[in-house]
Amino acid sequence: MARVKVQEAPFDIAAETAALLAGRQDIGGLGCFLGVVRGTVGGRALRAMTLEHYPAMTEAAIAAIAAEAERRWDLLGCTVIHRTGRLAPGEPIVLVLAAASHRTAALAATSFLIDWLKTRAPFWKKESYADGGEAWVEAHAADDAAAARWEG
């Protein structure tokens, strides 16, 4: 059963990693993906990124994605934390941890989790630029392609 959290507050990678490893010796590898707000988008300086989500649905959607990862790989632990609200460049947005007895499963599950999260969890990003403009981020075909490679 994965640990899933959606929150405005920052998260502590060291504490989350320690929580997955606590009291067990069967974990041989822990895959980690940390998503961070970039300071420029297409050459345009970014002032902030605001994440909106669908509260009644978000955690259940992430839990379903994590359950699929647990079905595909023998995971010994899984944590997904996604932040919402207004974030500045350099701030972490999302943390994915997947623990397994060996690195192959840990890394593959981590990659799968972030690919599906990007295309199947109800979050929407709005960019606020240093020049005062704002725009909703468009879904990327590359993200759909990355998610699709796990299908079939």
Binding site: M57, H82, L117, P122, F123, W124, A139
Partner: peptide, 12 residues
């Protein structure tokens, strides 16, 4: 029913 409309998602 609760029906939600939204753009393609862009989280992660």
């Amino acid at each position: 029913d609760e029906v939600a409309f939204f753009p393609p998602v862009t989280g992660g």
